[in-house]
């Protein structure tokens, strides 16, 4: 590799092509499962958050409605 800009460019191109994959909205069935909630008792946490949301008027403040379907 002769010059610095070429190296930087190559690095940039490689960094954008590896390691990332977009999960399409129609592929998020498994992600939306409550089991994907990062907690020991995901279902209990869902219920707790639901109560908290309505008590505090903060729906959506704690993230998605379920595991991570990213539903609009």
């Amino acid at each position: 590799m002769k010059n610095k800009p070429t190296k930087v460019l190559l690095l940039l191109v490689l960094s954008t092509t590896f390691g990332c994959a977009t999960v399409q909205p129609w592929e998020r069935e498994s992600l939306s499962d409550p089991i994907m909630i990062f907690d020991e008792n995901p279902i209990d946490k869902g219920i707790l958050e639901h109560h908290l949301d309505y008590r505090e008027g903060s729906v959506g403040g704690t993230g998605g409605q379920s595991g991570g379907c990213g539903c609009g």
């Binding site: 129609w26 998020r28 939306s32 379920s66 379907c69 539903c71």
Partner: peptide
């Protein structure tokens, strides 16, 4: 486009 796993749907 909808699915049963999607809350707003």
């Amino acid at each position: 486009f909808w699915a049963s796993w999607c809350s707003p749907c």
